[in-house]
Design a protein around this nucleic acid. Sequence first.
DNA 1: CCCCCCCC
Length: 608
Amino acid sequence: MSYNLTAGAIEDIMGGSKVESPILQCLDWKKISSQQGADRFRLLLSDGVCSHSSAMLATQLNDKVTNGELEPNSVIKLDKYLCNTINGNRRVMILLEITVIAKGAQVGSRLGNPTPYKLGESKEAKVEQPVAKPVQNSISNNQQNKPQNSFYNNSSSKPFVAAQPSINGPGDSPVRVHPISSLNPYQNRWTIKVRVTSKSQIRTWSNSRGEGKLFSMTFMDDSGEIKATAFKDQVDKFYDMIEMNKVFFVKKGTLKTADKRYNTTDNDYEMTFNNDTEIIPCDDDTSLPTINFNFVEIGNLQSVEPNSNVDVLGVVKSVAEVSTITTKQTNKELKKRELELVDRGQVLVRLTLWGLEAENFNSMNNPVVAAKNVRVSDFGGRSLSCGSSSQLVLNPDIPQAHQLRGWYDSEGRNADFNAYSSEAAGSGSHSTNWKSFGDVKSQNLGTGEKGDYFTAKGTIVYLRKENCMYMACPQADCNKKVVDQANGYYRCEKCQKEFPNFKWRMILSANVADFSDNQWVTCFQESAENVLGISADELGKLRSENEAAFDKVFDESVFKSYVMTLRAKMETYNEETRLKVICLKATPVVAEDYHKKLISEIEQMLSI
DNA sequence: CCCCCCCC
């Protein structure tokens, strides 16, 4: 097996040429530790002729190193990369997208005989291509630290020079547009061309260090996104101008390390506007990506970690009035409004809007809403809340939204929904917490204080007939076992009373299996009656009067499948602690409903 | 320079 490295690519790239999708060998990598906790990897790349160690892996690709995909000697294709100049002459490549063509172990050793690249040294005695020369003085105010030939190797048609005359003064050269991913705190001569993909409300603060107001926003271009914040004067200057989804040129802002606690973008840096910041509207609305979503299905919110942020797509089934609440901490009055969102999984979740967004939300006719970056809370099972970095988009023009619209108008409008809600916290909300029996073990369910409630589809593989029922106190609120006095009376020790009758109660041990594992579960009265399809009273009669019929009830119940509401909890008997799983409810599988759930899970998988 | 994301 031979691998064709793009010989000469490193020299060309270092010389400033644009090389499409070069194939290089990664000879080694090195972890550059940073105080921020975000590791960065520097790669030693070779094109077979030259090697060069100034290639940084974009942090979103770190897992390629950590998961072992990019081991030394791998052959890789650079699908998307940048080349920046630092300190006037040192060039650094930033790898944004790569494909590992051959694993290091497969390649085995370094290919060719690469020697380290040195600036200005040509490997061959060839005439230098004019394009490979650093661009000199083509831009007014040329600075040492300016990225002289920063380019963005995406598609062939991406303009590197803004064709927008409005930001160039008379006689100025066209302004070079930089990708967001190239911004860093060490260079301040840049212009980015970005779309606004979120915009917060204005918020005020007052603390020991002073007071003021601010708003924040997210900018996006092909290379990534960045959070930007405007304070005080800059709020007055830019708040009205910055509009969701619009495109702007932005130049001169202060870059600092992103505080990942409050910044959900994948950018290592964030921007603060300053007195020199310029923002110029741009009417080009087509060349930049628009807000993108990574939707979690409403029914899958149960498996999302509370207090994390997600994107959700749903139909607004209902809109409540605005109400006012008072915060516990500061006694501040806040306006809120609740929306109910539903999707094809037929699950309903509540989304809370705050402040002006609550007051201004005014939409009838059950719009589809795409909610970006909303916070997941575990209140009432799961609920959603908008924060400052959240963004709602009504009736977005995306395929999933159109599908959802069609579904809602044709059937969803009249469908019943499984709601995450506080009333259902004991049962209903758990009906959407699907687990497999394999999950019960691998996720250590039941180890918590309260026990874990979940839903599983299981097939009965064995029913333990022995001791599955007992004679119980006939009092309505007492289910204690009674003692047969052998004189026609039955004594309940708890009630301290003898009765001429008793009632049958069930404790049925069932072994239930799904694709992943099997599980012993205990069914008490109701769920045992569900599973056996007969009342305890009738079964009790059969037991004493017709053993064959009694056995038949069990035989016929085996290999039937049920959707079960279960509770797993560790319990201790005689100093032995083991997991006990109780079946609270068992309903025969309705194929149509269950298949809908499977289909929505498949759709969920495909949409990622 | 904020850093709150609330309430049931």
